[in-house]
Design a protein around this nucleic acid. Structure first.
Lengths: 249, 249
DNA sequence: AATATATTTGCAGTAGTTTGCAAGTTTTGA
DNA sequence: TCAAAACTTGCAAACTACTGCAAATATATT
């Protein structure tokens, strides 16, 4: 096997799984660990990956800095996603909804966490495929052009046949009185089906959305088991939600 | 054997397999390794391949940066996709399979063409969402990490409930005797379901794949209605396929 | 056709790379 | 803090590359 081939495989492996161990590479490529070490060192010097102790990580993974994709309040959404991670256990069966906050959750799933993960969202699915220990199942349906989410009867029907441990959902608007509301009727129908398909529903929601409403209602707040915001639990903005028997993270 | 001839063989070999060893070339071409070395050096200087220690790699392969997703024989695949477009009419209901050739078809769909389009492939779905007049329906299922395609029982079941006008499919290997074959068993099961879900099946296939086989059979060539390659219809490589009642584009 | 000129090819010796191993040092995580 | 794992360095064996040269082949000229 040529050196170039080997290095190409290493790049592929790193890009696919975000990280890789030198020992695994050596075994897979049938060369000594020294050779792999030298290869990774060269690739690091060419800025094709980042070498770390014991292995290598992809460039995208190494850059913890918020990249080119400018998401509104990305730092808050990342904070929310990190908190939500605490709910996950090995071998959980979960569902991740669409939206930028849920996408951050998908991105931040640890590579060593074993999960079965359903989703309706194309971008979330793309991220989940990068996680070596996550089995990803896409709920099929008609795709919405702007939200990139599967919707419609077939998606709702597919959801009726599953029951996941946790679903992580976003919402357009949330309010103590009206609950979760949306601008779009189809989105509401799909989110209802998602909530029905889950033992526990976890709402991921930045504080800007608290106390806002729109025209179509997804559900009342009492069907939500856990709400995750970027705020500290004792923040006064959350007071109104604490009386509703919701776990607040 | 003329020098030109030999160098042409070397280029072919490198492009087809992405890499080649000087020792193998010397043996195959019945010349000394020095001669091959000089040939490869010249070809490298002409930027027709990249010489590396012990062999040579193709241009696309050499630049193993993950960002520039270099597709093998992209120009041929684009040519195939353009030909396949001729089959489409407004309001057709079609299915586009995964694979790089099918992805090119999705990219090249005219923005004014009205279609209902099913797919199992995440990258194809991403492209279809960019087309304003295409209604995209994703066939859900367990997503494969390397092919980024929905597979498994639920995908096969979802396929059993539809019948599209045309399905555009790729294949790993194709041969007049053995038909369409694949490396992967699950892929074969899914492709079978795709073909059953379509009134007409269109095979998109670069000429390099003609007359090659692998271990699992998708279907015989007689269930394929149309075959699209980058070759001219009168190319002799297609002669063997013309006796099989297949439309050739 | 015969000769001169240029190119190509294979060989041999030398120079340079790559690889795996071993000994010693550093980092990591409990 | 300690033990395990990972890293560094130097080295020898195997492999690959380059150089110059002579024989073989091709091309051009008379």
């Amino acid at each position: 096997m040529l050196k170039e081939e080997r290095q190409h495989s290493i790049i592929n492996e790193v890009e696919l799984h975000n990280r890789v161990l030198l020992t695994d590479l050596a075994e897979k490529l049938n060369v000594s660990i020294d050779t792999v070490r030298r290869d990774v060192k060269e690739l690091d010097e060419e800025n094709l990956l980042v070498k770390v102790h014991g292995g290598a990580v992809s460039l995208g993974f190494a850059n913890h800095s918020p990249q080119s994709n400018n998401v509104y309040a990305l730092d808050k959404k990342i904070a929310i996603a990190k908190k939500a991670l605490a709910l996950l256990r090995n071998n959980s069966v979960i569902l991740i909804d669409g939206g930028t906050t849920c996408l951050e959750l998908a991105k931040l799933l640890p590579t060593n966490l074993k999960l079965t993960c359903f989703t309706l969202s194309l971008p979330v699915a793309m991220e989940l495929l990068r996680k070596p220990n996550v089995e990803t199942i896409f709920i099929g349906g008609t795709l919405s052009k702007d939200s990139q989410i599967a919707m419609g009867p077939s998606a709702i029907h597919a959801l009726s046949e599953i029951k996941v441990d946790y679903s992580f959902i976003g919402t357009g608007y949330v309010d103590t009185e009206f609950g979760l509301t949306e601008f779009d009727w189809d989105v509401v129908q799909t989110k209802k089906a998602v909530i029905n398909a889950s033992k526990k529903a976890v709402l991921l929601c930045i504080s800007e959305k608290l106390n806002s409403q729109h025209r179509f209602k997804t559900c009342s707040l009492n069907v939500i088991n856990t709400m995750v915001t970027e705020l500290e639990p004792w923040d006064t903005k959350l007071d109104a939600f604490k009386n509703l028997n919701i776990q607040i993270l």
